[in-house]
Amino acid sequence: MSETADLLDPEASDRTSDRQLIDLDALYRESGIGGMLAGMDRELVGLVPVKTRIREIAALLLVERARRSIGLRAEPPSLHMCFTGNPGTGKTTVARRMAGLLHGLGYIRRDHVVSVTRDDLVGQYIGHTAPKTKEVLKRAMGGVLFIDEAYYLYRPENERDYGQEAIEILLQVMEDNRDDLVVILAGYRDRMEVFFRSNPGMASRIAHHVDFPDYEADELLEIARLLAAGMQYRLAPEAERAMADYILRRMVQPRFANARSIRNALDRARLRQANRLFEARSSAIGATDLLTIAEEDIRRSRVFTQ
């Protein structure tokens, strides 16, 4: 203890040469976050600002742990986060990886994510909300509580809305159980800003705001490729060009939900592929036919006829 006290004392600093050498790299390796960050780079397309922020947060947490290991007193860092972005930009996916990261660094005890929306937290009659919220919080303890579309918790048009009660319980736990629970709020950017403006207590307890940008067309194509590979399908070269066309057309249409739209498009292409194979069932098919999505499976989409 005296050694660390000496470190902070400017006059004593030349007496204590930095005797305690800390192997930050060893800490980094044993926490296993290197693999997780690399996996994130490999498996998540685009999202460069998000990845940069997460790297920064990981570095902060690692250094914080090193400081703590030599006895430098540090308040446990506030880890509550807010993910803003349009639908389908990977907020839930990143939240799951965040839980793995925090678990690897020893800031949460389990790497589970409990994902909830307003319905899970807010009750329907007086006295229903508190037990419901507490139940969810109990389930999330030790891990990450992910609240999707968090702005629905607060309904300014109805002053007797029970959402406010849920927010107050949440705030209490976010403050008292910082070691047990990390809360991640997610939602559209503009609506989250309104939410924070009307709940300053919530805004001040959230340390990290991460903004998820929309995907570019080429990133979406890459996502389509990864998704198809994940489902053990393959896009034929012509199908890939068709997909690129499809993405450009779909992006300007209403209700475009980034990666989620691509996933849905792929699901429908699978449907059409199955149909095509079924129609031609009189002739024998090979393994290649079963796993290849052809150009016509995509070209027949409604997006091309509109």
Partner: peptide
């Protein structure tokens, strides 16, 4: 009874 908890903290609160 608490069927769906993963961490002891939730039980400790009760």
């Amino acid at each position: 009874p608490m069927f769906d908890l993963r961490d002891a903290k939730g039980v400790m609160m009760e």
